[in-house]
Write a protein that binds this DNA or RNA. Structure first.
Lengths: 110, 110
DNA sequence: TTAGTATACTTTGCGATTCTAGGTATCACT
DNA sequence: AGTGATACCTAGAATCGCAAAGTATACTAA
């Protein structure tokens, strides 16, 4: 069975993470699930991609994190969009839109 | 002047090259110009990206090349889509479409 | 003729990022 | 006690686009 391996394109992960957080804070594992759900199971983020990405993103000041207790009773690190992160999300979405537009143009140009 | 630097996302270049070639053979430099034109100047491929990519793509059998004399009188290496390359283009376009769809879903999911 | 510009190909090395694969630990359920 | 889901982290490999440099030819303008 040739399973379609839907690797993410490099550069899209940050946008997905920021987008996942834009309606409230989540912990890392929850971000993966949220991206999965919202995309109708089409996007899957590996843990080995997510956690380093979250670290990078936090270094850049786009999210802030704090350890807290999840409702299930387990410790988890919760991430929240910062104001700067919200702006970055806009930038990345605009950039994404431009690329999609450009590729569409190229493809439609018969 | 904040010039928007529209870097390509990693993984899209092959598709663009194959697409540029799907209406006839071109030489390397011409591929760059074609992608530029067809995308309304929105996409620019650097030579340092293109030539290694062409090498990779030829290794995979998606294009074939031959040296020939350009109409300007200069030697140039002309690339042509192979049958396998045409199939690969379909695969990559489908994959691109899936990704765009998934990202759209994620973004529309308020 | 000589300088500059556009064309045309190649190569090296960098930087950034995703994935694989492993590890640790907790919790619920059987 | 064992399994599976949850939750975090890290190291290493692999990929790929880009910047920068080099080589060379053709055309044009001073």
């Amino acid at each position: 069975m040739a399973q379609h391996k839907a690797d993410l394109l490099q550069g899209t992960l940050d946008m997905l993470i920021l987008k996942a957080l834009c309606h409230g804070e989540l912990h890392g594992y929850g971000i993966i699930q949220r991206i999965r759900q919202l995309s109708d199971e089409m996007l899957h983020v590996e843990q080995g991609s997510l956690y380093p990405a979250l670290y990078r993103i936090e270094q850049k000041g786009w999210v802030s994190s704090k350890w807290d207790v999840h409702e299930t009773g387990r410790d988890a690190k919760f991430y929240k969009l910062t104001r700067s992160g919200r702006k970055q999300l806009e930038v990345e979405e605009a950039s994404w839109d431009r690329l999609v537009l450009a590729v569409n143009k190229l493809r439609q140009a018969t």
